[in-house]
Amino acid sequence: MGRRVFLASVLSGVLTACNDSQSPFSGVFGRVAVQPLRVGINAAYAPFESLNARGEPVGFDIDLMRLVASHMGRELVFVNLPWRRLLQSLAQRRLDVVISAVAVTPARARNFLFTRPYYRERQGLLRAQALVALPLQQIRRIGVLEYSRADDHLARLGVESGQIKAYPDAVLMQAAYHAGEVNALFGDEHVLRVLHVETTDTLSFDAAFGLDEYAIVLPMGAEDLQAQLNQSLQELEHSGALAALVRQLDI
């Protein structure tokens, strides 16, 4: 057999053996190219995710994802999107995962996969001193963030849907509160603590308000990646690395 014929035969065999995700030469050289994980975030909610002065993503979720990816031997590409587009882009497979303080809910679990929870956050209520004695159910208008679990928590606590007004981001929610459009704000601890810095109003937390469990979100059908992420999260938990990261949270 001539050298050209022999080489053509070898390359033909390699091409047949490779699947779509591998380079035709990966079998020859023993390496498979692994694409970076496309990680969706909404960098508007410090300390979980925000942008620094150089426009780089920083925060708890960013650090955690980097630890997880390092453990998996994967590179990362962060994709900053508006909150309302995150899960939509994930469902369309434009992203591999989403990590953005996303709470696990039954509705979301019907359409997406979740890893094991990596953080649990309290719910809080910010209101003027004059309303401190007023039961939650009697506050006329309560501002919450869209697509959060605040509506679910408030409904469970007996607050009517007509009392709740949702806003697309924390800036608009804060402006509505200062303008008197709503009498109180309800939601995640880290969001309300940031808003509380700029007011002398009362910020309170109660076990009855509820907890949100945050997890990494994946599209349906990504069970293999889900298992890898869960293994990494479990080992970070057992090693104490996850607890050390939580201690650095400025909440």
Rank of each mutant, 00 (worst) to 15 (best):
T105D: 05
H190E: 06
F209N: 00
R140W: 02
F114Q: 01
Y118S: 09
F112R: 10
R156N: 05
H196G: 12
R156K: 10
V171D: 14
M173Y: 12
L113R: 02
M173E: 09
V98I: 02
R116D: 15
F186D: 04
K165I: 14
A179S: 06
E198R: 09
S148H: 02
L154G: 00
F114L: 06
G143H: 06
R108P: 07
Y214K: 04
I99V: 15
L90K: 04
T105N: 12
R85D: 09
L126I: 05
F209M: 15
E189A: 11
L131P: 09
E189G: 00
L211D: 09
L185V: 03
P168A: 09
D96Q: 08
T202L: 01
L134A: 08
F78R: 07
Y167A: 01
N80L: 03
D151K: 13
V132I: 03
D152H: 02
V98S: 02
S89P: 06
V77F: 06
R85W: 11
D169M: 03
N111S: 10
A107D: 13
D169V: 02
I216G: 04
V182S: 08
D152V: 00
L145K: 05
L172M: 14
L87R: 08
I216H: 08
A128E: 13
I216N: 02
V97D: 12
V77M: 15
Y177L: 04
V132C: 09
H153R: 15
E121R: 13
L113I: 00
